[in-house]
Amino acid sequence: MTYRIIPIILLDGIKAVVTHQFTSPTYVGDPRTLAKIYSDQGADEIFVLQINPSFNISDNLNFLASISKFTQCCVAYGGNLSTIRDVSSIISAGFEKVIFRRLFFNNPSLVRQVSLIYGSQAVTICLDIVHLLDEVRFGVFDQYSEKYLTLDQIYELQYCDYFSELLLNSTLADGSFNVDSWASSFIHEFSKPIIYAGGISSPKQINHLFSRGYDAVGLGAEFAFSAHNTSAVMPSLTHIYNKI
């Protein structure tokens, strides 16, 4: 079996950061170098996620292009995409996929339009996993909006033809070294690939997530912070593959 491990580079403007529950960003380096490192280490794909709401895509296209330029793998971009023009700029900057989160709720017709133009394989939907009392909800939960789907609505998503995979992002687990304990048969039954991200800090947890039925895992903070590395990004994909 081939495990899909996807390095995630979080951007705060033009700097790579890691976060704890998507707050308190800590600077960890140049995203261009990080993308090259992951690619040189054999990554098949890389996710680049912008967390700064004031980041302007059209003003920083050259910078974004140089992130993907020196990689030999598929690079996906998410964050601050609000128009078809933004998406086409990102695709022309060398990214092969776009990741929608808030826009999926706010402007689903635009998501469909992107899928019609670039194909559904170029669209990934990202949902936050949030625990509210005994209930688990999926959606967008931040200071700007709170929109969510129930588990039944999520089930329905697998029949949508305008996206190819689902990224489940545990905001609770982000940067915590603990993966979300939530588990459901839904993960096994969902017909589209599901990627888990948030809190992964050891090869053991990666194995555990694959055994739960996830098709891929996204790693960000693991490369940055682990039990013996408390300060910055020090990635080794080979090391992780050797251990799982």
Binding site: T33, K36, I37, Y38, S39, D40, Q41, S226, H228, N229, V233, M234, P235, S236, L237, T238, H239
Partner: peptide, 14 residues
Amino acid sequence: NSGLATHNVRSLID
């Protein structure tokens, strides 16, 4: 840093 450098440091440290 190159990918080799970070791999080597990480493997050794771990």
